[in-house]
Amino acid sequence: MKIRIALYGALREADASGRVELEVPAGSSIAELRERLAAHLAGHAPAIPAGLVRRCAFASAEEILHNHRAVPEGVELAVLPPVSGG
């Protein structure tokens, strides 16, 4: 299935459109999506530090999705680098 992921903070610099689209098998976990995103960025955005995706969280508009969660179908996700508000 195709997953659209919105990019924020330092990860915005990975793609001028502010999004990436990844293909993952149905039933994949967030941990698997994380690996897929890290591999995609290593190829398409080498300026992004390799360790950054490991420190990111994945989220829908409603909640943070931790590693063990299944990737929801038909929902745009967001990948959230370490936060620095305030």
Binding site: H66, P82, V83, S84, G85
Partner: peptide, 27 residues
């Protein structure tokens, strides 16, 4: 708000450089 909210700060410096702050992981 500082440690948990999905907010990112990019600083702009006098020499024209910019950098995203390191921040707290939500993972």
């Amino acid at each position: 708000v500082k440690h948990e909210a999905p907010i990112w700060k990019q600083e702009h410096y006098v020499d024209g450089d910019s950098a995203w702050s390191e921040g707290c992981s939500l993972c």
